[in-house]
């Protein structure tokens, strides 16, 4: 191949290299800028939201953790499970409140149902909750579980954190 062709190929590669480097630099700066924006907004969101850990166990050994789930302040255990799963429920109103009847297609029957538990970080144990999950106001860092199990609740619960 003659020298002239090489010259033009070299020129084209030079243009490509410089333009590509400058464009990569541009997008790197954009990336850093938007990443900082994201961090800033995340910090702001900490004041109007909370993060909780949610465990769903299906009674057959299958477990699903939803760690660091972001929820608005004043969220309840019920709105939290609504946020991460396909939930069916019945609203009995008043003190009875809402009862979760099905999570992700697994519905309760005459022998089994959905229960929810809270992790006591001080006592280091799961605590069964006997009232509606809609009445439980969440706090940042809370960990709770919905379990599919027999109505005859036994201690300890059929899972560990």
């Amino acid at each position: 191949m003659e020298r002239r062709v090489f010259t033009y190929i070299a020129l084209a590669l030079l243009v490509w290299g410089i333009s590509g480097t400058a464009t990569a630099g541009y997008y790197f700066v954009q990336y850093r800028m938007y990443w900082n924006e994201y961090r800033h907004l995340s910090n702001l969101m900490e004041f109007v939201s909370l993060r909780v850990n949610i465990l769903v166990t299906y009674g057959n050994g299958t477990r699903a953790w939803f760690n660091n789930t972001v929820l608005p302040i004043n969220a309840t255990a019920f709105t939290a499970i609504l946020a991460v799963a396909d939930v069916k429920y019945e609203d009995y109103g008043g003190d009875a409140g809402i009862l979760v009847t099905s999570i992700n297609g697994l519905a309760g029957d005459s022998t089994h149902g959905w229960f929810y538990w809270f992790w006591d970080a001080e006592g280091l144990e799961w605590v069964y909750q006997s009232y509606s999950c809609a009445a439980r106001i969440l706090h940042g860092g809370d960990t709770f579980a919905f379990t599919y199990q027999s109505f005859g609740i036994t201690w300890p619960p059929p899972f560990s954190p």
Binding site: V15, S19, A22, T23, G25, Y26, V29
Partner: peptide
């Protein structure tokens, strides 16, 4: 130099 070359990169690519 860095800010000028980087901020003008896309315009330069269009130009080229």
């Amino acid at each position: 130099l860095a800010s000028t070359f980087i901020s003008g990169a896309l315009f330069s690519v269009i130009h080229v």
